[in-house]
């Protein structure tokens, strides 16, 4: 029973990791950009949530209404203002620029919010739980998992059922020919980054409700997101959810064996999968 419990908790934790990963996956899928600052944007989302909740005195989940559009706007401006300039050449320049962004973001957050760990207060939601037979499931992890599924489904729908998604796929296939269709790739990339940071805002707020955070925790979130994307297979959104779940389950089972093994177990499973299937479990199949 304890093992079943560990697997179920790990699955729910995987929802959070999928939220970390979705934006990363989307950005890589559309413009082959690896955003090293992604984890710091998750933390930025958490801090924006914290500010909004303290200033307006609202529930963190309500703060999403402000933080999501705000992060989307930051994403669009960032892409049009800086990141578009780094694309088109080698892979190194976007890596270096986003690495620099990561350093800047961490230091700015440190300046503004200090290094003290903070947490968002979600009231009764944090401790509420439901029983399912012998299992006791936290409402917050359940909600996080539900949001992750909804976000992935919404992204999937956007990608395959809307004009914007069609433009994303076309631009990803062939930027030059997409331009011939009247699509301005700089704008399309801006929209992709806006969407990615909107999802990142959700990830940041769910993170900030679940655990305490400080300006330095972005790197770890980037790794989890990255591992989930790679396990699931690049460019496959449902695969990213599966990757998050596999990582989450590996971590909780590792922690069950020995509390110190939580992160290690996740990394080992990641490396094992990478060794056996270098393209991830579910590499991109379109349609």
């Amino acid at each position: 029973m304890e093992w079943v419990n560990a697997i179920v908790q790990g699955t729910l934790l995987g929802g959070l990791y999928a939220l970390f990963a979705a934006g990363l996956s989307l950005i890589f899928g559309v413009m082959r950009l690896v955003n090293i600052a992604h984890g710091d944007f998750i933390v930025l989302g958490a801090y924006l949530g914290l500010s909004v909740t303290t200033i307006l005195g609202i529930h963190p989940l309500v703060a999403l209404v402000f933080v999501v559009p705000c992060m989307a706007m930051i994403g669009y401006i960032l892409q049009r203002g800086i990141l578009n300039q780094t694309l088109g050449g080698d892979l190194l320049s976007p890596l270096l620029v986003t690495f620099g962004l990561s350093v800047i973001l961490q230091n700015a957050l440190l300046e503004i919010y200090s290094a003290d760990p903070q947490k968002m207060n979600a009231g009764a939601l944090e401790t509420a739980s439901v029983s399912l037979g012998d299992l006791s499931l936290g409402v917050l992890p359940l909600l996080t998992f539900g949001i992750a599924v909804a976000v992935i489904a919404a992204l999937q729908w956007t990608f395959y059922r809307t004009a914007l998604g069609r433009a994303f796929r076309a631009t990803s296939d062939n930027q030059e020919i997409a331009q011939l269709m009247g699509l301005n790739r700089r704008h399309i990339f801006g929209m992709a980054m806006a969407l990615a940071l909107a999802v990142t805002a959700i990830a940041g707020i769910m993170l900030g409700i679940r655990t305490s955070f400080d300006p330095s925790v972005g790197g770890g979130r980037l790794i989890f997101g990255f591992e989930a994307v790679i396990i699931g297979g690049l460019g496959n959104l449902w695969g990213t959810l599966a990757g998050g779940v596999i990582l989450g389950v590996a971590q909780t089972i590792g922690a069950k064996i020995d509390p110190g093994w939580q992160l290690l177990a996740g990394h080992i499973v990641f490396l094992a999968i990478l060794a056996v299937r270098p393209n991830g479990l579910f590499p991109r199949v379109s349609g």
Binding site: R166, R169, S172, D173, N174, A178, Q179, L180, G182, L183
Partner: peptide, 27 residues
């Protein structure tokens, strides 16, 4: 830029067809 030219009403059928593989025929 190419997208601006396209909007003016000039279209190119490129050498080698260059369809979008991720899109269906209708898309």
């Amino acid at each position: 830029r190419a997208d601006e030219v396209a909007n003016l009403g000039i279209a190119l059928v490129p050498e080698g067809r260059q369809l979008f593989p991720s899109l269906s025929v209708e898309e």
